[in-house]
Amino acid sequence: MKTKLIVLVLLIISATGFAQNGEQTIDSTFELLKAQKNISYFDVTGEMFKMLSETKETEAEFKDYMRKLTGMKMVRTYNRHDNGTPDIYKLFMQNTNLKGFSRLMTSETSTRKISFYQKKSKAGNEYLLVQSSAIIYITGTIDLKSISEFEQVMNIAGSAFDM
């Protein structure tokens, strides 16, 4: 019982460990990150998603996803053995104000750290995946379950989509 209590306290401490973040908005942190060395950047706007959801090229299975998305940004590192490649996990956490976001979970091993965040509002949901090699920011009316199911959707419909 005592051990369980200690573990519980540890979990709560780690869950609140990210209370201290920076002051920048997510968008401005992405601007900061994309200016770093060895970074690739990808940004899709709501207008583009609207177009993707309306085009005949899009398979039915994916159309619903496109309809529910209003924004997507991703930064990725490449050439990680170059000393100039930044630790984007650290940079993101230090600079971004994540007020209003709830941390869903964090997993950390000797080589990998990953965190998931979510913010819900009437206007839509925001999801963040933060890891040392990539940061993904998704906005829209999509829910977490649909994002999780996407892997299965891809396995079924991916082949029809040339993926």
């Binding site: 990808f42 999801y127 993904i136 892997e151 891809m154 993926m163």
Partner: peptide
Amino acid sequence: EVIQVLLLFS
């Protein structure tokens, strides 16, 4: 690309 990013997240 969108699909690949969504897949990675998922």
